[in-house]
Amino acid sequence: MSAPTDKTLLQVEGLRTVFETRDGTVCAVDGVDVIVERGECLGVVGESGSGKSVTFNSVMGLVRSPGRIEAGRIMFEGRDLRALNQTEMRAVRGRDIAMTMQDAMTALNPALTVGEQIAEMLEAHDKGLPSGRNARRRAIRAHSVKMLGLVGIASPETRLGQYPHEFSGGMRQRIMIAIALASMPKLLIADEPTTALDVTIQAQVLELITDTRAKLGMSVVLITHDLGVVAEHCDRVMVMYAGQVVEQGRTADVIMRPKHPYTKGLLGSLPRLSLRGQRIEPIEGQVPELIDLPAQCRFYSRCRERGPECLKNIEMRDAGNGQTARCVRVQKELAT
């Protein structure tokens, strides 16, 4: 991972988040480093259980018992978020860093109108709202109308008074984005924003995120399992497997020249029209249980390139061009 610069907005180092279960301690996130630069879009790819959501729930301070952050630093604009108390964290959450959840139906409050939910956000993170009661209400309403318009909802004035169930799935996802964007955050974490949506609606929502990123100059972390989405919308990508980052780099580099066997396997698993008639090469086996993992490469049991040298803890290795991968076979290439 490249060193932080003054362009760095978020830097996570050595994050370790564990969950206590009856069967033992599950290490969902194990030594994860993340850097998000100002204005960039970072894609986070991985399968279920790879730790991608837990990593960013940790950043947001949303990990609840029986889970806890065991180690690591989470630096946002030079402040360690882990050192903040509840009140201070609440001020960061929503105002500086906003997050949208995968399932908009359960994330929105069904008993409040959409307008009330946007207003709640604005009230909580009061950014220069007028103090008079009526003026304040008018300002909030005007801003809410603007936000709904921004996310492409027609006749926002009427829509503000409606409840989440009166909207379709794509609309609800957009409302959640509107709420997240209402306080003009510096970082938007979008957790699987389009997984529950149809492709034509998915395209609309992703374009909305990309457009507002450009307009507001914010950074975006896009958590997804879809490499196609990453290829089209992210500047850099981070691939996670079994609680660790196994590869990261510029999107084009990682997709065109993947270094880690898991990334190669993922790309090779994608059914594509261009591969008709050829066999796809699935990755055999399944993700290991995250309890009492042996000190070896976590992908070992499924890897086609495994050897005795993989039976130890593997560090991230530099592959050149800012691309790194957690594999003993990775060698630095000359910059191209």
């Binding site: 374009e207 594509r272 261009s274």
Partner: peptide
């Protein structure tokens, strides 16, 4: 045109459909 593909990102023209089903 709405399907994102890893092979040729950004090489396809996008048809913008408005509205929902």
């Amino acid at each position: 045109s709405a399907v994102p593909e890893v092979d040729r990102p950004g090489h396809r023209s996008r048809v913008r459909l408005t509205g929902d089903l």
